[in-house]
Simulated assay, not measured.
Amino acid sequence: MSTLKPEVSAKDHVEGGKSASIEIVEFGDYQCPYCGDAFPLIQEIQDTFGDQIKFVFRNFPLQEVHQYALSAALAAEAAALQGKFWEMHDALYENQHRIGDDLFIELAKTIGLDLDKFKKDAVSVEIQQRIDDDFESGIRSGVNGTPSFYVNGTKFDGDASNLYQMLKESTA
């Protein structure tokens, strides 16, 4: 059974209950259609379980398959430096059908980012390293595709709908 390496830390992007008993980590790619399909289910899981779960997102851009995966991850991380990671994360998935270079600036404007800072940050070594660290974490954790989910540190064998079903059964 694959385990999450490294464990969730303060440098991760976290939503939900900080001391929740259920921790879900998703390794995702903003251009992956399966991640796009999982997105509304993850939102539903978050709405249903609220502070009972802690949700963490780590970047795993599949650059060989998805032309804009890395650019999208860079956009999300640049938004994070302005405190708007989750707004950009959500906007990227909500607009996945039209992902491309023009979209990133448009979304940055929409969510109210300082555009000069956003453009500068999106090409910074620091942001690239953050994505590389997430990707390396995925490799070390046994990720072999996106989305990949880890529940309380252990790889979950299934998709977002299986995850939702398991959570409903385990918290019933």
Rank of each mutant, 00 (worst) to 15 (best):
M1D: 15
M1N: 14
S2T: 11
S2P: 14
T3H: 13
T3A: 04
L4P: 12
K5H: 05
K5S: 13
K5T: 06
K5M: 07
P6E: 02
E7D: 15
E7Q: 14
H13R: 10
V14Y: 03
E15M: 11
K18P: 07
K18Q: 15
S19C: 10
A20Q: 12
S21L: 12
I24H: 07
F27R: 00
Q31C: 09
G36P: 06
F39V: 11
P40Q: 05
I42M: 12
I42V: 12
E44S: 09
E44F: 00
I45T: 05
I45F: 08
Q46M: 11
D47W: 10
D47L: 14
T48E: 10
F49W: 02
D51G: 07
D51M: 04
Q52S: 14
F55V: 13
F55P: 10
F57T: 08
N59V: 06
Q63K: 11
Q63V: 03
E64N: 15
E64M: 10
Q67I: 08
Y68I: 06
A69L: 01
L70D: 02
A72K: 02
A72C: 10
A76H: 01
E77F: 00
A78R: 09
A79Y: 12
A80V: 05
L81F: 06
Q82G: 00
K84P: 00
F85Q: 03
F85L: 07
F85H: 09
W86S: 01
E87Y: 03
E87R: 09
M88C: 14
H89D: 03
D90F: 07
Y93P: 08
Q96V: 14
H97D: 12
R98H: 04
I99N: 00
I99S: 04
G100Y: 02
D102V: 00
D102M: 05
D102L: 05
A108V: 09
A108K: 08
K109R: 15
T110A: 14
G112D: 10
L113M: 06
L115C: 09
D116C: 07
K117H: 09
F118T: 00
K119T: 08
K119W: 02
K120N: 13
V123E: 10
S124R: 14
V125G: 10
I127M: 13
R130F: 09
R130M: 04
I131T: 05
I131R: 00
D132S: 10
F135S: 11
F135E: 04
F135K: 04
G138T: 05
G138H: 07
I139V: 14
I139D: 05
S141E: 00
S141Q: 03
S141V: 05
S141P: 13
V143T: 08
T146F: 07
S148C: 08
S148M: 12
T154I: 15
G158V: 02
D159Y: 07
A160M: 01
A160K: 01
L163Q: 13
Q165E: 11
K168M: 12
E169C: 01
E169R: 12
S170G: 00
